[in-house]
Write a protein that binds this DNA or RNA. Sequence first.
DNA 1: ATACAATGTGAACAGTGTTCGCGTTTTCAA
DNA 2: TTGAAAACGCGAACACTGTTCACATTGTAT
Lengths: 206, 206
Amino acid sequence: MRRKPQQARSQARVEQILDVAEKLFQDIGYEAATTRAIAAHAEVSVGSLYQFFPDKEAILKALAVRYMQTQYQRFLDLHTAQSITLPLSSYVDRMIDVFDQFYTDYPGSRAIFEQLLDTITWSAIEKIDDFDYQVVTELARFFHSRQSSLPIAKCEHIALVITKTITELLWLSLSRDQEFRQELVAETKLMILSYLKQYLDEENNG
Amino acid sequence: MRRKPQQARSQARVEQILDVAEKLFQDIGYEAATTRAIAAHAEVSVGSLYQFFPDKEAILKALAVRYMQTQYQRFLDLHTAQSITLPLSSYVDRMIDVFDQFYTDYPGSRAIFEQLLDTITWSAIEKIDDFDYQVVTELARFFHSRQSSLPIAKCEHIALVITKTITELLWLSLSRDQEFRQELVAETKLMILSYLKQYLDEENNG
DNA sequence: ATACAATGTGAACAGTGTTCGCGTTTTCAA
DNA sequence: TTGAAAACGCGAACACTGTTCACATTGTAT
């Protein structure tokens, strides 16, 4: 955000721009949605648009961050103190359901993430894989709690592998029909579970 | 390719353009490498460039296809008749090594694939995931040969899951140092193996 | 009412991918 | 060898993009 809007009027404008941009990105795509078009639909001049966003990419990023914060919060909510005692299979079930459910609850997020992957240069992702990093760290801490004999460094590797795999496979599932998607979610669960069993034994469940 | 070059002279020009474009894409990136710059470095006019390639994207695609053909061939070579009798763990080892080795042998491919992911619109990939599809189909046939009790449809799901996972994790490994990369390759092998064991039993090895 | 800061504007700028009319070179039958 | 027809090569010109900036308008506080 180039300039923090100080008056109520301009705050509303930022929201207006974001809403219009999201709709346009989803309808005609990031490239086709020119800054002129976004400004016009938001009943704002290009100049005003650039007063709040340093460039076009920033608009897309802002939209993506909004979704990622929600996704991250849901993930955090799963990792309560009591979830450590959950059977491994139940835990894997719930964790993957969190991601699956997110895409169901926010179908619009798919298009935004898609455009983001298409557009953003791999090097300049900063804030975006900050979220990935936070998820990985949180997951690693959780694994270490379940199995303290496992070095934290190893836990981080495992967490990274799992995060990337789940993200990729659930992402893939979104491009198929409902039936295929459920099948893919089930396979993902099986894969993650059988992998985790190699490291986390299940002495703490029936 | 807009027009197939019919004279030897223009054939050489196409090669020249591809070589120059690859170097430019790797050095300064796809976006920064303007068609003017590519033409200039190849000592060719923009007009000539557009005589062979319908648009800028086609140049990148042509480069990517070149690498993918190599990768696919290596993958095919692994699946000989005798490899069906290989212990599952040895097979997984070799298969993942194929992908790992490819990136080692063709370090330039990384930049090209990266630019491709950044650039190409998700919908217009046609030829690109033709390769993915071929790998999945081949893999599914192989699994079905090993374990004919497993329905071919199920084999395809498993193959898809595995292909996507390996691609993603090895891709991730490329962005880290050598030590981390080896660690990640090892984790990938463990994950794929423990997953496959759920479906393919090992009655045919010691 | 006045001064000043915050905000809004859109023509203008610098750059892009792509086209197309026209000059040049190669081919090949007469 | 000759002469047209086809293939090839060229780069100024076109249409469009993201972005800026000098200026006009609005809001705030004295």
